[in-house]
């Protein structure tokens, strides 16, 4: 874990318009939940979280964070300067991942915690939070890996989240075994029984760990072989 690289990644994340977009997600989510709780009651507001906040906003924040720490450098080629330094590839990947993870947990998981707490029922909120932490961790690692592979990381990651996890997940229950979102929910179920119980707990925990480690390792591995072409 290299502090300088992490600091640079953090600066890239916090710079300019990107930062406001990143901030917009938690702010709007919390505002929306607050508004609806005020107008109706906590339970109605809570439905927004498993419907919108958890499956959509959390991964979007993870995508934005992961692609911000790696994407622009790959895009304009300045990644070569970083790779020319005598720093281990995997250290580079870990340093960048730590920043993306922190952003995801703060802007995504923490926002979900706050929003759930506003709707009352602390246990349910904690359950949701635990699920969001697990899923957020795995998401950020996976999307970091995707950012290291293709210039179209954002759209590829979006397709994974929207098509695979959301659309197909609603159609076929088998998909739950291969859906990061479902793993998170399963772990959260241990805290609060109000959350769904889609798959096996051991599987969910193991799979999350495997995806996280593999994602970061793969990102580091791919950094080695970067060809900068002008192709789209």
């Amino acid at each position: 874990m290299n502090g300088t690289i992490a600091k640079l990644a953090l600066q890239a994340l916090l710079g300019r318009r990107r930062f406001f977009l990143l901030l917009a997600f938690p702010v709007l989510l919390i505002a929306l939940v607050t508004l609806i709780t005020a107008l109706t009651d906590g339970d109605a507001a809570f439905d927004i979280l498993p419907g919108l906040g958890y499956p959509l906003v959390l991964p979007l924040v993870a995508i934005l964070a992961a692609s911000s720490v790696l994407g622009p450098e790959v895009d304009d080629g300045s990644i070569v300067y970083l790779l020319a330094k005598p720093v281990n590839r995997y250290v580079v990947a870990i340093s960048k991942w730590v920043v993306a993870l922190a952003a995801t947990l703060v802007a995504g998981s923490l926002a979900i915690l706050v929003a759930s707490l506003i709707t009352g029922d602390t246990t349910r909120a904690l359950g949701m939070f635990v699920g969001a932490v697990v899923a957020g961790t795995a998401y950020s690692a996976l999307f970091l890996a995707i950012s290291a592979i293709t210039r179209h990381a954002v759209i590829a990651s979006l397709m994974f989240v929207l098509i695979w996890e959301s659309l197909l997940g609603n159609l076929f229950t088998g998909v739950a075994w291969l859906s990061i979102g479902q793993w998170g929910l399963r772990v959260g179920h241990e805290v609060s029984a109000k959350l769904p119980d889609p798959a096996n707990l051991t599987w969910a925990v193991l799979a999350s760990i495997v995806v996280t480690v593999a994602g970061v390792w793969f990102a580091g591995d791919r950094l080695r072989s970067f060809s900068l072409r002008g192709e789209d």
Binding site: L21, L32, D47, I48, G51, L56, H152, A153, V154, I155
Partner: peptide, 27 residues
Amino acid sequence: LRRGFAVVGSVVALIVVSGVVTSVQAI
């Protein structure tokens, strides 16, 4: 101008806002 962020922006405008509106309408 970066394609990735344009995509996220469009997704927010089309998908996230849509989802929010539907939830609000249901409530």
